[in-house]
Design a protein around this nucleic acid. Sequence first.
DNA 1: TAGATTGTTAATCGATTAACAATC
DNA 2: TAGATTGTTAATCGATTAACAATC
Lengths: 214, 214
Amino acid sequence: MEINYIPEAVIRRLPGYYRYLERLEKAGEVRISSAKMSQDLGLNASQIRRDLNYFGGFGQQGYGYSVEGLKGEIAHILGLDRRYNAVIMGAGNIGRALMGYNRFASMGFDIVGVFDNNLQKIDGSGVQNVSRLLELAEVMDIQIGMICTSPCSAQETADLLVNIGVKGIWNFTSVSLDVPEDIPVQNVNLNDSLFELCFRMNNLNAKITESETI
Amino acid sequence: MEINYIPEAVIRRLPGYYRYLERLEKAGEVRISSAKMSQDLGLNASQIRRDLNYFGGFGQQGYGYSVEGLKGEIAHILGLDRRYNAVIMGAGNIGRALMGYNRFASMGFDIVGVFDNNLQKIDGSGVQNVSRLLELAEVMDIQIGMICTSPCSAQETADLLVNIGVKGIWNFTSVSLDVPEDIPVQNVNLNDSLFELCFRMNNLNAKITESETI
DNA sequence: TAGATTGTTAATCGATTAACAATC
DNA sequence: TAGATTGTTAATCGATTAACAATC
């Protein structure tokens, strides 16, 4: 028996590995070494091997990793070898962008409904009144809720999603949501991302500077 | 003289501090202690004080920090005390969502153009042909390029933005852009974010598990 | 002054990397 | 077998936290 904790830093790198392996597979590559991955991804080769070994020994000494095999393993680790039903909450700018994104289905995510509380947005485009979410939830298992509402509706929307039994929340508002701890919330904060860009634009020379020591 | 390197982890927390202080200020709070910030933000109080002290001694012993003063300092650190001209490249789902976001201006970002190479998207909505970017760049200093194109146009769009002299790139494609090292690229990878959510949905009990030691 | 809270040091914790034995 | 490359250990590096002297 040993402790099998996955470091946060490793979790954040997993999608990148997956994306890279998909690209290799499309390019027809059959095998890949940690040294080549290191070059292409800009990560240390030891780190890559160590990351993968948190989940299992997927490689073969003297050979490397099978592209197809490793991609499959990572898909399984991420849970991408199954399908998810998802609802989009809020049909504003972001909600409609997600609605229009036509690659969700091929990645395993079925958008089974888009809801808003603003009657003006409930036109012919398939957006429904939020009050109809309960009906849908009765006939369909909804695993993911994507929150794209205004900040002031974010928490009540999260509560509603928890009530209908979603297993995870993708949160595009900057509100820090209060949900049971067994329901992961993945935050996408575009403002924060833009601010971080600004910081880097303004502090290029600040990595090493002189400063007075009193 | 001392080395004044800002850790990546600190940089990532800065926008969160800023957002928090804005909220406090709106709520009419005048002073704030690291202990209260710790509670509200779920960060260690020592860490908060240490983070802020990379940039200066903004607090006062026995008192704490002035909400207005600290917010101003962080705004300055992030470069939010000035304005930026930005262009949106690509009028697909994400590009149009950014176009419709009406809070950029109040945060200091003026969207001075939206460009696409698909003539169908150049309708009455203000989207221009990408060939007209050069004209605009001649009469206007464009600091930020937001890339929302298809993956296959991402690198050439980045090259174009570098040519017209942008100082930073906000990249919504999953393409790893090759640009001069003095131009920061901030990546927003929504697929990666969704995959990370999936991982957490599927590995809630995996933090500590039994595993065979051979 | 007494109480409160910062700024900063030292200790701890976690993540990265180099090195190499294991092995395909 | 010889060469290549993994899996894993030990060393290093960086980030977090506890503790407390400084000081408002």
